[in-house]
Design a protein around this nucleic acid. Structure first.
Length: 341
DNA sequence: GTCCGGATTC
DNA sequence: GAATCTGGAC
C-alpha cells in the first residue's frame, strides 16, 4: 500500500491493489497530478486543517497519514513523500525553517498601517470594480461559478476588462456550469475578447464547465486541491476562489503585486537565506509562516492597490510612499536601464 | 525557460 | 519599442 499526502489538508488513499504514483504538494506549481484523476477508484480522505496554514514538517505529515491509515484499517502503510523536482530544495528548507521559528519582519504592523492610510487617500484601479455587481441575483451555485469564471479571466488582464467580459457572459446567461457547458466555444471566445489569452481561456472555460457538471453537479470544487485540478486554475486563482466563493481562508492569494511588494519590503525570503523569493508560490509559503491569519484576506487587496498606484513594477513612486523609511528597497531601483529587486 | 495576446503606458 | 496587465500550461 502506498500513501501520499498533498501539501494541504487532504490525503488520498488508493483502494486499488497497486500503488498510486503521484506527486505530493498539489498546491505547489506544476505538481498537478492527482490520484483522483489517475485512479478513479482512489478514495479521498479529509484530515482537517493545517495549523495556521503553515507548511507542516514531513514528520507531521507522515503521522497524519499513518493515523488515517489506521482509521481505515490498513496496517503499516508505506508512506512516501514525492516532491516535484522544482520545489524539492525549497520545500526541504521550508520544513527546516518551520521546525525552527519564523520571526515576523520588523515593523510590519507599522508598514501595513501606513499602506492602509495611503490606500484610503489615493484611489486605485482595483477599488473601482465591484465583483458582486450583477451577480447578486444569481443562485449560490451560479454565484460561485461566476466567481470562478471571473478569476479565470483575470490573469494578465486589467480589472475593468475582466469585469466587462464577465458582464457580457452574464447577459447571455452563460454564468452557470450547465449553460457554459452547452455554449459554443467560439461564442465564448468572442464574448470574453479582449481579455488576455482569450483563445485559451475560452477552451479552459468549456472544460471547466464540463467538469463542474459531470463531477460537482453544476457547482464548483470546494477545496484548494480539487480547484487546482481544473485547467487554467493555478495557486493564485485557487486561493482567491476559496475566499470569494466559499468564504474559506486556506491560504493567501498571491499575485504579481503581492509577490513584488512583499519582496521589496523584505517580508519574504527563501528559507534560511536573505534572498527574496523567486515565485508567487514561494512568497505565499513564506508570508504564511509569519503573517497572522486575520490578515490573510485583506493583504491581497491592500497590496494590489498599493502595487497599482505607488509601488509599481517599473519606477516605483518611493517619494510619495509614506513607509519608504521602513522599506529596504526604497529609492534603490535605478530608473534608467537595469532592474533590481 | 517559452507561449498565449490585445490594450495601454511610458 | 519595451514592459506590463490581480497566471498558468507545456
Amino acid at each position: 500500500m502506498f500513501l501520499s499526502l498533498p501539501l494541504r489538508h487532504t490525503a488520498y488513499l488508493s483502494s486499488l491493489p497497486f500503488p498510486i504514483r503521484f506527486i505530493s504538494f498539489t498546491a505547489m506549481p506544476k505538481a498537478r497530478k492527482n490520484p483522483l484523476l489517475q485512479n478513479p477508484g482512489a478514495q479521498k480522505i479529509e484530515t482537517g486543517s493545517e495549523d495556521g496554514g503553515v507548511v507542516p514538517t514531513n514528520r507531521v505529515r507522515k503521522r497524519r497519514v499513518e493515523m488515517i491509515a489506521k482509521e481505515v484499517k490498513i496496517e503499516s502503510p508505506d508512506v512516501k513523500f514525492l516532491r516535484h523536482p522544482e520545489i524539492e530544495d525549497f520545500a526541504h528548507k521550508s520544513d527546516t525553517a518551520y521546525s525552527q521559528s519564523i520571526q515576523p519582519p520588523a515593523n510590519w504592523e507599522r508598514v501595513i498601517e501606513g499602506i492602509r492610510r495611503m490606500r484610503s487617500s489615493e484611489h486605485a484601479p482595483v477599488d473601482s470594480i465591484d465583483p458582486e455587481e450583477g451577480v447578486a441575483s444569481l443562485q449560490p451555485k451560479e454565484r460561485r461559478f461566476s466567481v470562478l469564471v471571473g478569476s479565470l479571466l483575470s490573469s494578465q488582464t486589467k480589472g475593468h476588462v475582466t469585469h466587462e467580459a464577465n458582464q457580457r457572459l452574464l447577459e447571455k446567461g452563460l454564468l452557470s456550469a450547465d449553460t457554459m457547458d452547452k455554449a459554443d466555444e467560439d461564442t465564448i471566445k468572442s464574448l470574453i475578447y479582449p481579455v488576455g489569452f482569450y483563445t485559451r481561456k475560452a477552451k479552459h472555460l468549456k472544460q471547466v464547465a464540463k467538469i463542474c457538471v459531470s463531477k460537482y453537479e453544476g457547482d464548483i470544487p470546494s477545496t484548494v486541491d480539487e480547484l487546482l485540478l481544473l485547467p487554467g486554475v493555478g495557486p493564485k486563482i485557487a486561493h482567491l476562489v476559496m475566499i470569494m466563493a466559499w468564504n474559506k481562508v486556506e491560504g493567501i492569494c498571491v499575485d504579481t503585486h503581492v509577490h513584488r511588494v512583499s519582496n521589496r519590503l523584505g517580508w519574504v525570503s527563501q528559507p534560511g537565506t536573505k534572498q527574496g523569493t523567486r515565485s508567487p508560490e514561494e512568497t505565499r509559503i513564506s508570508l504564511q509562516q509569519w503573517l497572522p491569519k486575520e490578515e490573510w484576506v485583506s493583504i491581497n487587496l491592500l497590496l494590489v492597490g498599493f502595487g497599482q498606484t505607488i509601488c509599481t513594477p517599473l519606477r516605483p513612486h518611493c517619494a510619495k510612499c509614506t513607509v519608504s523609511e521602513l522599506c529596504p528597497s526604497a529609492f534603490k531601483e535605478i530608473s534608467s536601464s537595469k532592474k533590481k529587486l
